[in-house]
């Protein structure tokens, strides 16, 4: 093979045909309120850990809806379970409980 000094750039397009919804569906089974998020960003704005670690419940949910499990797990590691996000969620999602449920699913998968 020839060496050209450049290569085909990878595409950033998300192929929604290939999204694996299985984690999202498992989450929704135990936390149906996960479906209620309207991406307002209140949780991220108030998150104690967010500005240092990138943690955002909104982004975690979006990543899981787009099948990006590893990215969601990475964000979740920043959470300190303080519960501020639960206080501000206008849709009344128990985000703290949701995070714990997600951790439980990830924990089960690691076993």
């Amino acid at each position: 093979m020839m060496e050209f000094g450049f290569s085909i750039s990878p595409s950033s397009t998300m192929n929604l045909d290939k999204v694996d919804f299985s984690l999202y569906e498992r989450l929704c089974e135990i936390e149906p309120d996960a479906k209620k998020c309207m991406a307002c960003g209140s949780c991220s704005a108030t998150c104690t850990a967010g500005q240092w670690t990138g943690m955002s419940v909104r982004k975690v949910l979006l990543d899981i809806q787009r099948g990006k499990e590893a990215e969601a797990a990475r964000l979740l590691k920043g959470c300190m379970l303080c519960g501020k996000c639960t206080m501000v969620c206008p849709r009344g999602i128990n985000t703290r409980h949701l995070i714990l449920s997600l951790c439980r699913i990830y924990g089960e998968d690691e076993k």
């Binding site: 050209f4 000094g5 450049f6 085909i8 750039s9 990878p10 595409s11």
Partner: peptide
């Protein structure tokens, strides 16, 4: 610009 050439061929590839 050679540094951008990967974008060029990526479009053709697509």
């Amino acid at each position: 610009v050679k540094a951008n050439r990967g974008y060029s061929i990526a479009n053709t590839h697509k």
